[in-house]
Structure formats: C-alpha cells, structure tokens
C-alpha cells in the first residue's frame, strides 16, 4: 500500500475504533459493569466515616457504629431547602412502606425547618440525625442533596445515588443493589 492508500483507509480505521469502543460500552451496560450515568463516590466499598449525630426531631440521632449492626440501611441525606428532596419524598415514603429501613441525615438545615419539612411531607425515616455544620457530609463526599447511600449490615457503603430517587432509579438500580445485599 502506498501512502495515498494508507491515508484513504484512515477514516475506516477511526470509525472501526469508535465502533469497537461503543460495542464495549454497550456490552458493559448490558452486564452492568459500565454505567455512563453513574457518578462514583469515593466511599463506595468503604466503611462509613466515623460520626455521632444529634437527634433531629421527630427522630432519634445515631452513630456510625449503629449503622453497622447487621442489617442493611438506606441512608438518605436531605434538607428542607432542597426542591428535589420534595420530589423524592413520596418515593421514600413508598419505600419505607414496602419495608426498607431508611435512616436520614438532615444536611445544613436549621432544626425547626427540617422538623417542619418532615411534618408537612410525611416521615419515612426510622432514625434522623442532624448535620447542621455539614461535616459528616464532607466525610461522605456528598455532591449535593438529596443523595442516598446503601449501607450493608457491616457498615460498608455498597451503592450510592447522587440525586433524587425516582421510579426508574429505584426499579433499575436501587432494588437490584438491595436484593444483592440479601
């Protein structure tokens, strides 16, 4: 092949490379090993950071040790000032009704405002801690509220979702992750 022919074959090569890459991505998506929409949390696969949070009315505060008492828990960060949290709330209520234990951390929220929020929209939470200074959130590597972490019985973060849990996230991602914990 001369130079001209090599040059004219180059577009085919580029297209083939692109095609191969997309093929790998699609296979990964089918197997669940590749998720273009997921945002990883540095804490996934790690034990939850150490904390001891005061109670947020109407709930009871908790410590990181209490998260590791043998039963998996969905840990939800919320705030009364966050609009997507309002959107997410009915989904949390439904999850709680279906028997999933949900613990919450009120993030950077005055105590009375957070209490009002739960009073107005319903209480899906078993325990509620108050993180008014937002320190625990930093240790969790929180990217915003709402954000949810699935913590297994040993206190290790197994799954994480940055953003509101809606029907499709719950069905396609949270439920499989929850079932995987047994």
């Amino acid at each position: 092949m001369n130079r001209r022919q090599v040059l004219l074959t180059a577009p085919l090569g580029v297209a083939a490379l692109g095609g191969a890459a997309f093929w790998t991505m699609l296979r990964g998506m089918q197997r669940g090993t590749f998720d273009p929409r997921g945002v990883p949390s540095p804490i996934t696969g790690q034990p939850v950071p150490h904390f001891d949070l005061p109670a947020q009315a109407p709930g009871q505060g908790f410590t990181s040790a209490e998260l590791a008492q043998g039963k998996p828990v969905l840990l939800n960060f919320f705030a009364s000032w966050c609009v997507p949290c309002v959107q997410e709330h009915p989904a949390l209520l439904a999850l709680a009704k279906s028997g999933m234990p949900i613990w919450a951390i009120a993030y950077k929220d005055p105590e009375d405002k957070a209490a009002q929020f739960i009073q107005r929209h319903g209480d899906p939470y078993q325990r509620i801690g108050r993180d008014t200074p937002g320190r625990v959130a930093i240790d969790f590597g929180l990217s915003g509220v709402p954000e949810s972490f699935l913590v297994d019985g040993g206190g290790v973060v197994r799954w994480h979702w940055p953003g509101p849990l809606d029907a499709s996230v719950i069905q396609d991602r949270l439920q499989p992750a929850w079932r995987a914990l047994g």
Binding site: P11, A15, M29
Partner: peptide
Amino acid sequence: DPARGVFILGLLGVVIGGSLLLFA
C-alpha cells in the same frame, strides 16, 4: 435500551463501515 443499542450499532457499522471501506 442497550439491546436496541446493539442493533443500532450493527446498523451503523454496516452503513458507515461499508461506505468507508468502499471509500478506502
């Protein structure tokens, strides 16, 4: 739907790959 995606990719492969092969 990733399954749909595989079909699409195959189709794109035939159209784009075929035409670029012909070009080469």
